[in-house]
Amino acid sequence: MAQRYGSVMGFIRIGISVKSPLFDPGEADYILGLELTETLRRLHYISNNGLVIAADEYKPSYAQSVTHPSLKAEDIAWKIKSLWPKTIIIPARRLAEKAGSIRALNMVILGTFNALSNLLSTEGIKTAIRKVLPEQATLISIKAYELGYLYPQQAL
């Protein structure tokens, strides 16, 4: 849904039998956050054994910039971690830029997610990337995916 610069949440369900498109708060096995305040906003979706993977991006809304100008990325990251210790914050901007473009930030998250969840085949993901993106973006995206994939090993 087009909500440019607004708050957007997508529900993804993977399984043999998926009956309906949505799930309720407290049911998410994973939360993949592209931005910290938005991750915090949706944190109540996490399930008892859930894992939060979030980019260390801080893009506060207008309201937050005006009312809380002193906040910074670390403050929100700390808040998320204190509420939900099973959280990994990734330096996603740095890794995406290393891969060639900040726009590949989502691929970094996907890489880390897959390294930790083992839910999807890396080959499948790469094939999908090649299918939908033009060549230059494909190379960057795959590189970003790989950097994200390796991140948990290197960080631990």
């Binding site: 407290g26 938005e38 944190l43 109540h44 399930s47 309201a63």
Partner: peptide, 19 residues
Amino acid sequence: LEKTPVSSQDVPLRPPPLC
């Protein structure tokens, strides 16, 4: 109606702005 492990947080709204 099991409780969610994390309660819903009070984060300032982010209505879509002009680009």
